[in-house]
Structures are given as C-alpha cells and as structure tokens.
C-alpha cells in the first residue's frame, strides 16, 4: 500500500511528467472555457477536434513538418557558425566592437518579417529564403550571449593565465572559450526557438510547402482545427530541437552549475 503510493508519488514527481500534467490542465481549461462561454468552433476549435485532426491529418502534417525542420536546423547552424566567431572578434577587439556592435544592434531593430519577402525576390521559392529567415532571427541572441560570455572572464583570471606566460591562443583555448560555453549555450537555446519562428515566417511569404504554408492555407480556409494541429506540430518541432540541444549541453559542459547532479536532485 505505502510502497505503491510511494511509487505513484515518484512517477508524479518525475521531472518529465510535470510539464505534461500542466499541459493537461491547460487543455482542460481550454475545453471548459469553450463550453462555459459557448465559443463557436470557427473562433476557437475544441481540443477534441484538434486531436482528431492531428490524428487524421498526421501523415500530411509530418510530411510538411520536415522541410520546416530542415530550414530551422540550417538556419540555426548558420547562426552558430557565424554568431560565435563574430562574438569572439567583438569580445577580442575593442576596435571591432566599436565598428560592428552598434550596427548589429541597429540591424536587429528592423523587423525581419518585413524583409522576408525580399528574400523571395532574391532567392525564389526554394529552401534558401527560409534558411536565411531562420538565420536572421537566430543569429543575434547567439552573438549577444557569446559576447557576454567571452567578456565575463575575471580580470584576475586573465592575470593568472598571463603570469603563466600563456599566449593569446592558450588563454582563449584554456580560459575564455570554456568560460563562455554556458553563455553560448544559453544563446543557442534562444536561437533555436527563434529559428523555428524564422523558418515559418519564410514559409509564410514565399513557399508552397512546410508547416508555415499549412498554417496560412488553413486560416485562409477557416479550417481552424487544422491550423491548431499545425501549431501543435510546430511547437513539437521547437521542443524536440530544444531538448536535443539541452542534451548536447549536458555532454559538453558537465562541470557547469546548472548541470550538477546533486543540485539537480536537491531541487
């Protein structure tokens, strides 16, 4: 009896289950709200209808999810490949920082959605404009976090390394880069969720496939359950990619405070 309740408690307290319980709660609230306020299905579909649509249109949604995922991943990889070296340069040289950083911030205040159609004009309806759109959204958070990470090395730590006669490359490899890793990962995590948004924006403006396209078509046809089902799929893409990144982080920086096992257990 007590053993069984203990086992049940352990399952309920499992970290992976908690968000699911919360999600279930939200769905119940959603259903209740529709019933209580009698919201018509052309405004908000019932959860049941969305689940049915997810089941029926599952194969189609999965097929359309693939190009969106690919565009997201490419955009994200480009963000990392450009963002981290640029952050190194900005953190490493005051001159580069003073030239580049203000312009970079300036460029970020341009709404990317406004210039996405331009990519269609330049690169057509293929994969490239979507990748670029994902890259543009994912790039900035990587740079900002990585710059902060590279710059936050204690001055005494730098002095210590210099007193060992370490050259610039050794200081970078042994001190700055590992020190910046947690910040870089924080930036990458923001970046990957924004890259999903970027890919969908790319599909909105110029594509005839992908989840973004499904979203636009279904809203145009007032197929709200399909639209909601597409949103669920989109969210799942984001969650899975984020989770993969989380696993990579755990493997890459096992020493970091956020990864410490006993802290995790105590929490």
């Amino acid at each position: 009896m007590t053993e069984r309740t203990a086992a049940a408690l352990r399952v309920v307290n499992a970290p992976w289950l908690r968000p699911l319980i919360f999600l279930l709660l939200i769905v119940v609230m959603w259903d209740l709200t529709i019933r209580i306020f009698k919201i018509p299905p052309y405004q908000i579909p019932a959860p049941k209808d969305v689940v049915i649509t997810l089941w029926q249109e599952g194969p189609m949604l999965l097929r359309e999810a693939w190009p969106t995922t690919v565009a997201t991943i490419w955009g994200f990889l480009l963000s990392a490949a450009f963002g981290i070296p640029i952050a190194m340069m900005i953190a490493g040289s005051r001159t580069i920082e003073s030239y580049v950083y203000p312009l970079l911030v300036f460029s970020q205040s341009i709404p990317k959605i406004a210039i996405a159609p331009l990519f269609v004009v330049w690169f057509g309806f293929g994969m490239l404009p979507k990748v670029l759109s994902a890259f543009l959204l994912g790039f900035f958070p990587v740079v900002v976090s990585a710059v902060q990470g590279f710059k936050s090395v204690e001055p005494d730590m730098m002095d210590l390394a210099r007193s060992m006669e370490a050259n610039r490359w050794q200081i970078f490899r042994m001190v700055s880069l590992p020190h910046a890793m947690p910040s870089i990962f924080a930036g990458l995590k923001v970046s990957i969720t924004l890259a999903v948004v970027g890919a969908v924006v790319g599909e909105f403006v110029g594509s005839n496939y992908g989840i973004g396209f499904v979203l636009q078509r279904s809203i145009g046809n007032f197929e709200l359950p399909t639209m909601f089902a597409a949103l669920v799929v989109l969210a799942l893409i984001g969650v899975v990619l984020f989770w993969i990144l989380d696993v990579i982080e755990r493997l890459a920086i096992p020493w970091h405070a956020s990864q410490r096992q006993d802290v995790f257990l105590a929490a």
Partner: peptide, 17 residues
C-alpha cells in the same frame, strides 16, 4: 611575465571545468 613566478590571488581562481 616570466618563468620564475607563481601567483596566488585572494580568490582561488580554479577553472571550474
């Protein structure tokens, strides 16, 4: 910086990784 010196600072400054 030269070879014949070792330094200890107020904080240990051990690399956490």
């Amino acid at each position: 910086p030269h070879r014949d010196v070792g330094i200890v600072f107020q904080s240990a400054l051990l690399l956490p990784w």
